[in-house]
């Protein structure tokens, strides 16, 4: 295999990895603050992509404006979901699973009936390629990664530097400690869902502009997101970021280095090996 194929693979892996990180970060926030595994998060990503498609292609709004609006729409949607569906089921085991699986079906059917089964596409983020060591890397992937990284930095600064961000981290580390300092847990859950859903909408839009849109496009990223949070350490935000990049690179490089059969099971084998060595995940706490 030549150097240019490797560079392509790494570039693809990187782009994929950051999309996974956007999903995994939302899942992690929701899991660590609400104690809920949001299995319909992939469908939030899918609907986010369709909202951008609707605004941009059907109504003719600028692509970047559409993406920003889609993030806001999905954040509000997340707040509504939290208040009416997930809040009553918090800190229980079975109800959130049933609710989020039901939600998956509802959102998928909604997409099928509204937008149809035929694949749709969002315009590319940019045309053309840039050259890296004699190989062409499409500009739109570079922009997608740039967006994802910028969003993650924003989330990081919010969590680290603002009062409400700190309150969210605190709620994840000790729900009772947060209560006793006057932090309103419902507000923290709303925030977690709003941020998580906005990130998913951004991920769906970025992926949708590189690949295609269809009602089942959220299933695969959700699986990746789940693997990442286990890999990174349940509830660790840094773990979600590093885990996503590792998984993205594995996904990008393996198909180039090995035949497709091996490439499709290898990520899971690698993850299992990592977890055997470090059962609490890469950045897991306990």
């Amino acid at each position: 295999m030549d150097a240019s194929a490797w560079i392509q693979a790494i570039a693809n892996g990187f782009a994929l990895g950051w999309m996974y990180v956007l999903i995994a970060l939302g899942l992690t926030l929701i899991l660590s603050i609400m104690g809920i595994l949001q299995l319909a998060h992939g469908e939030v990503y899918m609907i986010g992509a369709y909202v951008t498609y609707f605004l941009c292609v059907s109504l003719g709004v600028n692509l970047y404006v559409s993406m920003a609006l889609s993030m806001i729409v999905m954040a509000v949607f997340g707040i509504i979901l939290e208040k009416f569906l997930f809040r009553p089921a918090q800190r229980q085991v079975l109800p959130p699973i049933v609710i989020s699986l039901g939600l998956t079906l509802i959102l998928m059917s909604f997409a099928v009936t509204t937008f149809g089964l035929k694949e749709k596409s969002i315009p590319r983020l940019a045309e053309g390629s840039l050259m890296f060591f004699d190989s062409a890397v499409p500009k739109d992937r570079i922009i997608a990664v740039g967006f994802a990284v910028a969003l993650l930095i924003l989330v990081y600064l919010f969590l680290k530097r603002t009062k409400y961000g700190q309150a969210m981290i605190a709620s994840a580390q000790s729900p009772e400690g947060a209560l006793l300092r006057g932090i309103n847990p419902n507000r923290m859950s709303s925030l977690a869902m709003a941020i998580g859903c906005a990130l998913a909408a951004a991920g769906g839009t970025l992926a949708g502009s590189i690949l295609m849109l269809n009602p089942s496009m959220g299933t695969f990223p959700l699986m990746k997101g789940l693997v990442i949070i286990v890999l990174g350490g349940m509830g660790s935000l840094l773990g979600a970021a590093v885990g996503g990049i590792i998984l993205g690179l594995i996904d990008g490089i393996l198909p180039v280095a090995f035949e497709p059969g091996i490439a499709s099971v290898a990520p899971f084998i690698i993850v299992i090996i990592i977890l055997l060595v470090k059962p609490q995940g890469l950045f897991g706490h306990e």
Partner: peptide, 16 residues
């Protein structure tokens, strides 16, 4: 059980 936030710094705990 004290319920401090174990993975936050002492300063961050105090501010909270």
């Amino acid at each position: 059980s004290r319920e401090i936030f174990p993975y936050m710094s002492v300063l961050e705990n105090l501010r909270l």
